[in-house]
Nucleic acid binder design. Structure first.
Lengths: 130, 130
DNA sequence: AATATAATGCAACTTTGATGCAATAAGATA
DNA sequence: TATCTTATTGCATCAAAGTTGCATTATATT
């Protein structure tokens, strides 16, 4: 097990997540850093950052992977896993602090959950009503 | 809009879903019918069967797509969408009739949900305890 | 049987992601 | 600061997943 070095590429990714309130998809990250670093590097840094607990990832509505930093509210708590919301109009994904209760499931052991709510985000709702 | 023809390939897929209690992943279907039909055909039949309401699909824990037929219990009901369970050991996915309550989410319009519980299925639990 | 067209096969292509290895750069140490 | 160790990166290559266009085939209808 190695130490994560604070390289130029790593700094760029950290900055991207610090500047973003919401989650960022791998596709967006690859495009954003196309000129700055190799795609392999992006994948590998995301792996390391998740493994080290700086980021967490989840699967979006279309099966694509999204990453987001942890905050006080979204950290792995007593809950199985915090839910996410993805907007059907703009595609944006957010971490939710919403507490979703999972009823007991007979004959199964539930260890975690991937809970994604899909609909219209605040910005897109405003656009619709205007 | 066209009519779905009852071809040999379509019959094979329908049979596969009728014989299976659980959902089937695209990867498994592609392998199973590798000798019988082109992969393009598998993709296209699944599209048609979902569009016509015979099957529904959902995203598994690893971002891969699964298909399952509708039953009385899992049909789109008053609930936003029925949840699924995927086993972390054997990978098997099942439709759940479990009713998961989604609390109201301020400033959002929630249209649907992708709810996946992850853990150990009955078969794998038995193996562990033996 | 003839016909219209839905469905399929096939080849080619795109996208996404992984891997091996040589070159580079970060951080520790002297 | 110079040196050294090794984590990290770039690059080329590859594999898997999925899409598209088009010619051919098969289904259902008349």
């Amino acid at each position: 097990m190695g130490i994560i070095r604070h390289t130029k590429s790593v700094k760029s990714l950290i900055q991207a997540f610090n500047e973003s309130e919401n989650a960022i998809s791998v596709a967006v990250l690859l495009k954003r850093f196309k000129e700055d670093m190799n795609k392999t590097t992006v994948y590998r840094i995301l792996d390391r950052m998740e493994e080290s607990g700086v980021l967490h990832s989840f699967i979006g509505k279309d099966g694509d992977r999204w990453y987001s930093k942890y905050t006080e509210n979204t950290s792995a708590s007593s809950t199985i896993s915090h839910p996410h919301f993805q907007c059907d109009s703009c595609g944006k994904s957010e971490c939710l602090t919403l507490d979703i209760n999972i009823p007991p499931l007979p004959n199964h052991k539930v260890d975690s959950a991937s809970l994604l709510l899909i609909g219209q985000c605040q910005d897109c709702l405003i656009e619709i009503t205007q």
